[in-house]
Amino acid sequence: MLIRKPADIPPSEITPRSTYVERRRFLGKLASVGGVGGVSGMSGMSGVGALAMAAMSWRPGDAVAEVGAGSLGALVKSAHSTNETPNSLHDISHYNNFYEFGVDKAAPAAQAHTLVTRPWTVRVEGLVKKPRQIAIEDILKLAPLEERIYRLRCVEGWSMVIPWVGFPLERLIRWAEPLSDAKFVEFVSLHDPKQMPGQLFPVLRWPYVEGLRLDEAMHPLALLAVGLYGDILPKQNGAPLRIVVPWKYGFKSGKSIVALRFVAQQPVTSWMRAAPSEYGFYSNVNPDVDHPRWSQARERRIGEFGKRKTLPFNGYGEQVAGLYAGMDLRKQF
């Protein structure tokens, strides 16, 4: 397979994390204060006054404290990382669609503490040489951990830039030894209403199931993530391990994975089951194929005031478009 690298600047030229996070928070404060007069239409404060307020309320320690100690140690920098500025750890961990902990985006951060992430094992089953399971500790030894800064585009029309820690999903799949007639892989998330109170409500069919075609799952951009910002994954982000497929809408990236099931037929995922006309199996980010109820042409990057154009395959087309050669992506959405 020909693997093209993105046309980004090398990671070595990227501003250090602590510097940009701090700078970004400060700019964010300025922007939010500057925008208030317009949004509320009732702020009597002058521009200079607003700037002064922002400067006063900004604490230099904020960013450093929230980035954490980087407990995952030295990480390989990935050539697949984008050079865009990542969102803050706070934004990434407090704006989550993780229905197992409630449908509100603030709910996972408030509720996910009940999730028990150790001990944790992942089963491999279905069309594999031998069904077996692997502990999270052993998964972490399968490959060196990399930092991968990816764009994430939610089907709802917002996006973020997230510095994941993980390694190619392919490494776990190779360990699983799928048989040659395995064409798809299902990702099964944890099902335990005691740990995941949102599962007491039939919003979706539990457990949450997602899936990829095997060649998609083996693509070098498909990531098995175990961390964020150099630290282990916050529970609300899908601890202890999750899938990240950056060219597809966020819901394709299953969280808190307990099983990989290899199958011959295209699986029915939780969202396909819930609303087949709205969520297809592929769900590649595509500005030309609207959600039946809203446009996918633009997105709001969290932390930005305006909206930006959504890119085909979320900007990863150069690397992944070949997977879909000859397919009508309007029909196979």
Partner: peptide
């Protein structure tokens, strides 16, 4: 308005 001004309305 206060929530916007004090940046208390969350990430979005």
């Amino acid at each position: 308005a206060l929530g916007v001004y004090q940046d208390r309305l969350g990430p979005n």
